[in-house]
């Protein structure tokens, strides 16, 4: 029954978290991501199959819609809630090691800035693409990134800023991260940023939307 994975994909994309969730109105009373994931596992699909063939796929679809302007912040947040409801069932297998995540991404809104919705959306997309996300929150100084990098060697770092007065703080943090280990990949994003700014501060990657970042990350896995 491939059908159940398709249903789960749609539940994630449409943001249907569980049977009782009133959103979206036209799916009232139907099974949500929570019930469908439990059922798929019970039917014998492996956690990895559920993750790759339904959850990652659903998040990818909503990410595409977001990039194209067909979906917006509310739909993304609902999709992320549905994904989280499904992940509850998958997480035990991450811990036991039977399902591998693609790697670890450390995220933080840069020191001096507290506008973190963009960073949160990215985190949901990256997690939904099969990565482990360590979210350091808003107003994140270098020391916090340093601590997280020591705890998760080989992790990538993503930083966001919404203001021109705070994005400049990315420069010093990027330099210090590169001084710790020149191979650590640093991604930057946020409304006032540009590819030029990314190049100037010595960061490795910039994307105007979260979809671009997940595609970049997936490219890293495929090329390694």
């Amino acid at each position: 029954m491939e059908d159940i994975l398709e249903k789960l994909t749609i539940a994630v994309k449409r943001g249907k978290a569980d049977k009782n969730s009133p959103y979206p109105p036209d799916m009232k009373g139907q099974d949500g991501a929570d019930e469908l994931t439990a059922e798929a596992l019970k039917m014998g699909f492996t956690p990895d199959e559920v993750l790759q063939q339904a959850l990652v796929k659903g998040m990818h679809l909503i990410g595409e819609d977001f990039s194209a302007g067909r979906a917006f912040v509310p739909e993304m947040l609902m999709a992320a809630k549905a994904m989280k409801a499904a992940m509850k069932h998958i997480e035990p297998f991450f811990r036991s090691g039977s399902v591998k995540q693609k790697g670890t991404v450390i995220l933080g809104t840069v020191q001096g800035d507290l506008h973190d919705i963009g960073k949160n959306l990215l985190g949901m997309m990256v997690e939904g693409a099969g990565w482990k996300v360590v979210d350091l929150g808003a107003d994140t100084p270098f020391e916090k990134f340093k601590g997280a990098l020591e705890e998760h060697p080989g992790a990538l770092v993503g930083m966001s800023a919404l203001l021109t007065t705070t994005m400049v703080n990315m420069k010093g943090i990027t330099e210090k991260i590169k001084a710790m280990n020149p191979d650590t990949i640093v991604m930057v994003g946020g409304a006032p940023l540009s590819q030029d700014f990314c190049d100037q501060i010595g960061a490795d990657f910039y994307s105007p939307d979260p979809q671009g970042a997940t595609e970049f990350l997936d490219g890293l896995v495929q090329s390694s």
Binding site: G112, D113, L114, D139, T165, T166, N169
Partner: peptide, 9 residues
């Protein structure tokens, strides 16, 4: 001095 208004809080 406007420095306090450039960043959080």
């Amino acid at each position: 001095d406007l420095t306090p208004m450039a960043s959080y809080p």
